[in-house]
Design a binder for these strands. Structure first.
Length: 560
RNA sequence: GCGCCCGUAGCGUAGCUGGAUAACGCGCGGCCCUCCGAAGGCUGAGAUCGGGGGUUCGAAUCCCUCCGGGCGCACCA
């Protein structure tokens, strides 16, 4: 039972476990094991209700036919008869809830752990689960636009958090470089190329009118001259498709890196076709009797796996649909991962059914999870801004980065729950970038750093060795310590719920608790024990802030 | 018509497996720098949680229904 050194108070989780088992035995003694209600302690909303609270008395009230408050009072009395002084500073029954406050020493022990683990605090050991996380995957027909900023931010932050919590994550992007849209792209580039000589040369009707193809056309002209002007389409089209595709993919990769988003794999759809895997994996479905031919087209029996309707995979002319290479792509991902996660835009939510159905059909039921990131409405003041590539009006992600910077953009894009629509007011983002909450958090980090600059070097070193932490008893100190201890739980929550916005919330909470502590407690006091203890708390707070910012790929400045 | 997401203070949002007086930021009113960074802290006003039913000891949260807004329902990608 006593794994911990005797001189140290148990960590909060362990202390809470002791409180729980004491409560459990009190329940059994009073009500017998017929009343086996689960005891769940959770932090209450309001701090005056203690560190943790449980509603177990409400559940017991029914079976025992007593009021929740009388049950809670009785149980608290019984708990007080047990020796819990070393873990509990108070326990009381209020309105049917049982509220407990842990001994300050438990939080101080936890602070020592933060100091000891440093930048690793919050990590979980490897759990042997391989995760494929796909996001981004914009069509290679234009520059990345603002909408992609959201999926990129969510995806990368989720990947960071999952890795920290022990998952083996592969981030991936599929390049949709096959199909009719690439013909349209090739023809659009060709038109831009011709326009260098003949300004009236028409853009194709279904093409991409954005000006971003012009510099690519100019480069082509510089390298190739006008040799393509007289060539037949059968010759120039494959060339221009490839040139446009390569240039745009390179630019997308460049912007992603600038946005601090990194992909482990870039999968070309064209390559899936050319390697024969698309056809092979369709055959796999056919072999299982999961396809049929109707009106000359090959259908996958998606309705057998919960989809609304069966889905065409091969058109009546033999060409595969968009869905076909996705089967090959997902089959490969499913084979090498325990979990496959796709982050898609809202325009793809009709696609979820057939994706999951396909995973089931291929023998991986439940392995595929889909996150839908809702739409961004782009505004400038009161006016909406067109974002359609086909309309030619583009606000690129690179533009946004130029305007507000990577830090603010990354933080902003994950501030809202993914399923919540995001209104991005360009004018506001430009004018009020200083009001962005990211600066509040970064300021906290810079402020702590500043304290260390003012402190003596020997003190800072001594502080990292967990000095007299029992001197930390002020309310604002305890609040901050409790907050820091929530980092591992918060990170796990981000991972389990696909909720990166909890990270931004937590970062603000940590900064807020620190600022309050800073206001109420002077750190560099004459009393050496107290000074070192408070420096230790600052060190831990800075560690946690830096960690959270790191998970979001936002910089943690020493000064600003 | 069917499906998915959203509707919480003037604005933007949070609210995790249902819990105690619904939280945070911006904006608005007031207060706090002889002292470690005021990009900060404290405090006030401001919410019938879109409407109506239901389940429950208890509902912003779950169920039904209606109303708004967005998106999707292809042999497009």
């Amino acid at each position: 039972m006593d794994d911990e050194p005797a001189h140290k108070a148990p960590l909060p989780e362990i202390a809470l476990g002791k409180v729980s088992s004491a409560l459990r035995s009190a329940i059994e003694r009073e009500f017998g094991d017929a009343a086996n209600a689960p005891i769940i302690f959770e932090p209450p909303r309001r701090p005056e209700f203690g560190d943790y609270a449980t509603n177990v008395a409400f559940r017991l009230a029914r079976t025992t036919r007593r009021s929740p408050q009388s049950v809670a009072s009785l149980l608290v009395d019984r708990m007080r008869e047990q020796d819990l002084d070393h873990v509990l500073s108070s326990a009381e029954a209020v309105g049917g809830f049982i509220n407990v406050r842990l001994a300050a020493a438990c939080w101080q022990s936890n602070l020592a752990v933060v100091l000891q683990e440093g930048s690793k605090f919050g990590d979980a050991p490897a759990n042997g689960t391989r995760v494929s996380l796909e996001f981004g995957s914009a069509n290679p027909t234009g520059p990345l636009v603002i909408v992609q900023g959201r999926t990129l931010s969510i995806g990368q932050t989720l990947a960071n958090a999952m890795r920290a919590r022990g998952y083996e994550v592969t981030t991936e992007w599929i390049i949709n470089d096959a199909g009719a849209q690439m013909d349209a792209l090739g023809r659009s580039l060709y038109a831009r190329y011709r326009q260098l000589q003949e300004p009236d040369f028409p853009l194709p009707a279904q093409g991409y009118p954005g000006e971003y193809l012009i510099p690519i056309a100019q480069r082509t002209c510089e390298s190739d001259g006008d040799r393509w002007r007289t060539a037949p389409e059968s010759e120039w089209l494959p060339h221009f498709k490839k040139v446009a595709r390569d240039a745009l993919v390179a630019e997308q990769q460049h912007v992603a890196e600038r946005f601090r988003v990194h992909f482990d794999r870039w999968q070309s759809e064209l390559e899936l076709h050319e390697s024969g895997r698309v056809v092979k994996d369709l055959q796999r479905l056919t072999d299982r009797g999961l396809t049929y031919v109707s009106d000359g087209a090959l259908y996958f029996k998606a309705t057998q796996f919960g989809d609304d309707k069966d889905r065409v995979v091969l058109r009546s002319d033999g060409r595969p649909t968009y869905y076909a290479p996705d089967i090959a792509y997902h089959y490969e991902k499913l084979q090498r991962s325990e979990r496959v996660i796709d982050i898609l835009g809202p325009d793809h939510h009709g696609y979820i059914g057939r994706l999951k159905g396909m995973a089931d059909a291929l023998g991986f039921p439940g392995a595929l999870e889909v996150i839908i990131a809702q739409q961004i409405t782009l505004l400038s003041g009161d006016e909406s801004v067109a974002m359609s590539k086909r309309a030619g009006a583009i606000v690129t992600l690179a533009d946004i980065l130029d305007e507000v910077g990577v830090d603010a953009a990354r933080f902003f894009f994950i501030m809202l729950a993914p399923e919540s629509p995001l209104k991005f007011d360009l004018a506001l983002a430009k004018e009020q970038s200083e009001n962005n909450p990211v600066y509040y958090v970064q300021y906290g980090h810079a402020r702590i750093s500043s304290v260390f600059k003012n402190a003596r070097v020997e003190d800072v070193q001594a502080a990292s060795a967990s000095p007299q932490l029992e001197r930390l008893v002020e309310p604002s100190e305890l609040t901050l310590m409790r907050r820091l201890s929530a980092l591992p739980r918060t990170m796990q929550n981000v991972v389990d719920q696909f909720a990166p916005h909890r990270l931004t919330q937590y970062a603000r909470d940590v900064a807020s608790d620190f600022h309050q502590f800073y206001t109420e407690c002077r750190i560099l006091v004459d009393d050496e024990e107290l000074r070192l203890a408070r420096l230790a708390l600052c060190l831990a707070a800075r560690t946690v802030l830096a960690r959270v910012l790191e998970l979001m790929d936002v910089t943690a400045p020493e000064s600003m």
